[in-house]
Amino acid sequence: MDETGKELVLALYDYQEKSPREVTMKKGDILTLLNSTNKDWWKVEVKITVNGKTYERQGAVPAAYVKKL
């Protein structure tokens, strides 16, 4: 869990989004888990830093590609 009490997951593999509802992640990324009720796809929040600014993006990733921490 992070400092706000939200559950975290670890990306076990790289994943490139294939639709606007998904998010890209790299192996080793730590993501915030938002919903894991679907056994195949979990909704997560990814933090992306671009030019020193951090953005948050929500989307789905394959459940088999992440592990709860």
Rank of each mutant, 00 (worst) to 15 (best):
W41A: 00
K26M: 07
T54I: 12
S19L: 05
T54E: 11
V46E: 00
T49K: 11
K18G: 06
K43D: 14
K67N: 04
Y55A: 06
E3Y: 13
V66T: 01
Y65A: 10
I30K: 05
G28I: 02
V50Q: 09
G28L: 03
E7W: 12
E56R: 15
R21S: 14
K27H: 05
T24E: 02
K47P: 06
T54Q: 09
V23A: 05
L33S: 00
A64Q: 11
T24F: 02
P20F: 09
K27I: 05
E45M: 13
V50D: 08
N38M: 07
V44D: 00
G28Q: 01
V46I: 14
L10S: 03
R21N: 15
N51I: 03
L31W: 03
K26L: 07
E22I: 02
A60F: 15
P62C: 07
S19W: 06
L12N: 01
T4R: 12
I48C: 12
E3S: 14
K67R: 13
E17V: 05
Y13I: 09
E7A: 11
T37R: 08
A64C: 15
G5E: 13
T4W: 13
T49S: 10
V50E: 11
K47M: 11
I48A: 06
K43W: 15
L8F: 14
V44I: 05
A11H: 02
M25H: 01
V9W: 05
K53P: 02
K68C: 09
P62R: 04
T49N: 10
V23H: 02
E17L: 07
L33M: 02
G52L: 04
T37A: 12
V66P: 05
V23D: 02
N38E: 10
N38S: 09
G59S: 02
A63G: 03
L69Q: 03
K68P: 09
S19D: 10
N35V: 06
K27Y: 05
L69P: 02
G52R: 02
K68Y: 08
L33P: 00
G52I: 03
T4I: 12
E56H: 15
N51A: 10
I30S: 01
N38K: 06
L8H: 09
K27E: 05
V44F: 04
T37Q: 12
E45Y: 07
L8E: 06
A11T: 02
E22P: 03
Q16E: 14
S19M: 05
K68I: 12
G52P: 00
K43C: 15
K47C: 12
Y55F: 12
E22W: 04
D29F: 04
G59K: 01
V61K: 01
N38C: 11
Y65H: 07
V46G: 04
V61H: 01
N51E: 11
K6N: 09
G5K: 14
K47R: 12
M1V: 13
K43N: 11
G59W: 06
P20Y: 08
N35I: 06
G59Y: 05
L34N: 01
T49W: 08
G52M: 04
P62D: 03
M25L: 08
K53R: 12
P62Y: 05
A60P: 02
Q58Y: 07
A60C: 15
K26G: 03
D2A: 14
Q58M: 09
G5H: 13
I30V: 11
G28Y: 04
V66N: 01
L8T: 07
A60H: 15
M1W: 14
A64M: 10
A11S: 04
T49H: 10
L12E: 02
K47D: 03
I48H: 08
W42Y: 07
V23K: 01
L10G: 01
M25W: 01
K43H: 15
M1G: 14
Y15C: 07
K6S: 10
R21T: 14
E22Y: 04
L10K: 07
K39R: 11
T37V: 08
E45F: 05
L34Y: 02
T4N: 11
L33F: 04
E56N: 14
T54W: 08
T4P: 13
L33A: 01
N51Q: 09
D29S: 05
K27Q: 10
M1I: 12
D40P: 01
K53T: 11
K68A: 07
I48E: 09
R57W: 06
Q16N: 14
W41N: 00
G59Q: 01
I48M: 09
T4C: 15
E17Y: 04
G52E: 07
V44A: 01
E56F: 15
T24V: 02
L33D: 00
T37N: 12
P62A: 03
K43E: 15
I30T: 03
E7T: 12
A60T: 14
N51S: 08
A60W: 15
E17I: 06
K53Q: 13
A64V: 08
K39T: 10
T32A: 08
E56D: 11
K27A: 12
A60L: 15
L12M: 09
L8Y: 15
M25Q: 02
A11D: 01
